[in-house]
């Protein structure tokens, strides 16, 4: 895979080079010539696309070549081990998502999320509640009311996932007990929402876009702390009266003991990259919400996310 990654990185840095001239930005010096960005997702998967897009725009601000390396398998465990074994000199980073926290908690991994150092956060993926457009539900309250009077049928994309956790937290907050059915991914879930088997599904915008644009799906609420920029009319779950908010984070982590000069460069660079108009155009269509969390705060954020998830898994008996 390395060989493919290099080929694309070359292409990426070429296109970035031409863009550099347009923006007339001077990239800051970086102690490493080549930076490897590791992901557990396969080429074309969520984190892979995230990194490849980012690798196109980073060279405008940091003087280095960015390479994406796919380390698949073990639900992210192998990628974390790859990172933990790498030198802490800013040459290797890993794309973090909640997956790596779940894997660390659910299996005896050689290296867990506590063995690596969160660097900075870039984005939040919007988690939304949706229903079929010709269905009876117009607001989240309608769904909760139905769950109160009869048996509600809710769906989550995967078992042991943030979506499942979101559905369970909403259940608790609203004091209802519908059946929450886990599926084999977003597509499987969407079919069962569209054909009326389920009242609602909890999922992410990119999976829903085809049906959203075709007008077959109605968004009811988002689990984001604020309303989504792309859908300003959709309320948050909190606004609908249920105190639940989630952040499906996307950022980078490095090996433990990153030097301060490295983390400083990234703390300065990330807001600049996120403000890049060309990059904004790309990530806005994917409904990614820019959510920069600097190095010193990101540690606490990840630890907090980890312990919340651990408590949830323990309370529900998934973890002994």
């Amino acid at each position: 895979m390395r060989h493919l990654a290099i080929a694309t990185a070359v292409a990426a840095s070429l296109s970035a080079w031409s863009a550099t001239h347009a923006v007339a930005q001077t990239p800051v010096d970086y102690p490493q010539k080549v930076v490897t960005l590791v992901t557990h997702s396969s080429p074309g998967g969520g984190s892979d696309v995230f990194l490849r897009e980012m690798a196109k725009h980073l060279p405008k601000y940091v003087k280095a070549t960015f390479i994406v390396e796919n380390v698949q398998g073990g639900s992210g465990a192998r990628a974390i081990s790859r990172l933990a074994a790498a030198p802490a000199d800013g040459s290797v980073f890993y794309a973090t998502t909640p997956t790596y926290i779940y894997t660390s908690l659910l299996s005896k991994v050689q290296h867990g999320y506590k063995d690596v150092e969160p660097l900075a956060n870039f984005f939040t993926d919007s988690e939304v509640i949706y229903t079929r457009a010709d269905g009876p539900f117009k607001t989240l309250k309608d769904v909760i009311d139905k769950a109160k009077s009869t048996r509600g049928r809710w769906g989550a994309a995967n078992p042991a996932s943030l979506e499942r956790q979101a559905a369970e937290q909403l259940k608790k907050a609203a004091g209802v007990s519908p059946a929450v059915v886990s599926h084999e991914g977003g597509g499987d879930l969407m079919i069962n929402v569209l054909n009326g088997t389920l009242d609602i599904g909890v999922g992410e915008i990119p999976e829903l876009r085809p049906q959203l644009e075709a007008g077959k799906i109605r968004l009811l609420a988002t689990f984001d702390p604020q309303r989504m920029e792309a859908f300003p009319a959709i309320p948050t779950v909190k606004e609908s009266g249920y105190p639940v908010a989630l952040e499906k984070f996307r950022g980078l982590a490095g090996p433990k003991g990153l030097p301060a000069e490295i983390t400083k460069i990234w703390d300065e660079t990330v807001p600049k990259v996120l403000a890049d108009p060309e990059y904004q155009k790309v990530y806005k269509t994917e409904s990614l919400v820019p959510n920069f969390i600097p190095h010193d705060k990101y540690q606490g954020f990840i630890q907090n996310f980890g312990s919340t998830t651990e408590t949830f898994l323990k309370e529900s008996g998934v973890l002994k």
Binding site: P159, E168, A179, V180, E315, S316, G317, V318, L319, K320
Partner: peptide, 8 residues
């Protein structure tokens, strides 16, 4: 196998 409240 753990017994979970998330189960059926």
């Amino acid at each position: 196998i753990a017994e979970s409240t998330l189960s059926d």
